[in-house]
Simulated assay, not measured.
Amino acid sequence: MAVWLLWPAAPREPVRVVAAAGVPAVAAETSAVAAGHGPPAPSAAVTASAATPKEPVAVASSDDLADHVPPGQTPSMKQVIEGLHARGIRTGLGAFNPPGTRPPLIGLAVPEDFALPPGYVRHHQATDDGQRIEAILMFAPDFRLFDAQGREIPLPADRVVPPELAPPGLPLRRITLPPPRQGE
């Protein structure tokens, strides 16, 4: 402590320490010290009552979802994401497409122990509510398929393997989507 009082003060910008509502001023001062702004001067003591704002502060642009949803409303995730997109927000939750805009692909189920020949891949997916879906069989992005005469066979645009082009030995069974979770 005596070393700090005798240590020459380095010039620095003043740090304004403000505690958020419900956060003691001591915690705000501690975070200022942790941020590398040095120990607060003895005269810079802040009390919680002086630092707590009396009125809510309007935020022009915030990453807090609560600032974008009116109080008392509980919008669906689709409504939240569409609202963020309407405001031009494309980060955080706004980086995602709304649920249901890209439905899962339906195709042939691929058992995990089935050895895939070259040109075929397992495609893993999840539902909008986070449930894993059984892997489906797809063509690899750079794969080209040829018939016995050497003519190229056109592949489906979505690259999902139809039953007639499945590799030999694969059980031909289409996946089924799990039902939505309750309460969602």
Rank of each mutant, 00 (worst) to 15 (best):
1 M>T: 12
4 W>I: 12
8 P>K: 14
8 P>M: 01
15 V>D: 02
17 V>D: 00
21 A>L: 12
22 G>I: 00
23 V>E: 04
28 A>E: 03
33 V>S: 02
33 V>L: 13
41 A>G: 12
43 S>T: 11
49 S>C: 00
50 A>V: 13
56 P>I: 04
62 S>G: 13
65 L>A: 04
66 A>L: 14
77 M>C: 09
78 K>G: 11
79 Q>G: 08
79 Q>H: 04
79 Q>D: 15
81 I>S: 05
82 E>F: 01
87 R>E: 13
89 I>V: 15
93 L>Y: 13
94 G>V: 08
101 T>P: 00
104 P>H: 01
107 G>R: 08
108 L>A: 07
110 V>P: 14
113 D>P: 00
115 A>H: 10
117 P>L: 01
118 P>R: 09
119 G>F: 05
119 G>W: 04
120 Y>I: 08
122 R>K: 10
122 R>F: 05
124 H>D: 09
124 H>A: 13
124 H>M: 06
127 T>P: 02
127 T>F: 03
132 R>T: 10
135 A>Q: 05
139 F>S: 11
139 F>A: 09
139 F>C: 10
140 A>G: 13
150 G>W: 05
154 P>D: 12
157 A>T: 13
160 V>M: 08
163 P>E: 13
166 A>F: 11
167 P>F: 01
168 P>R: 05
169 G>W: 02
172 L>S: 07
172 L>H: 02
177 L>R: 05
180 P>F: 00
182 Q>P: 03
